[in-house]
Amino acid sequence: MGDTVVRGQAAAERVRSAVAAVRDPEIRVLTIEELGILRDVSAEDDGRVVVTITPTFLGCPAMDVIRADVAAAARDAGCAEVEIVTVLSPPWTTDWLSDAARAKLAAAGIAPPVRRDDPGGRTLPLLMPALRAPRCPRCGSAATAEIARAGSTACKALWRCDACRQPFDHVKDH
């Protein structure tokens, strides 16, 4: 890699495309860019490239892995010096998931968060009014029920479909 070191804006662009392709360790079908974890990539005058990321949850245990994967991707793209900065503001929200990212989640059998402006979203008869029921990612039915609020990772809940009788993961609204 040493003979392909690049600098400046070109370096930032190259690192950006490499880093943007890093997959989330816990939701492998999405990249950190699609999840909204990657906030910025910029080139400094001294040749460093600064990658700015934000956690989904403050205690997200995947952050160390993400930092290591980002550093490795930047190195492989020929960037000798990369600095990874973690910011908390503005706070991450599932609203940042694009339609394409939501479609990828559904294709992988994971119900994406329900958009706040989704007219078909059914509000749950629960105590937290912001929570909305997802559609089944397999058959599309709205007849779904929550099994457990805490699922396989901190950002997911476990649901089941009453139409096709399959359990599924749901990325929680946040």
Partner: peptide
């Protein structure tokens, strides 16, 4: 402010759990 804005959303889930 950044830490608090992030944490406020998380604590809503904790309260919900405790209330239920």
């Amino acid at each position: 402010a950044g830490i608090a804005a992030k944490a406020a959303k998380e604590t809503a889930y904790h309260v919900d759990h405790a209330v239920s």
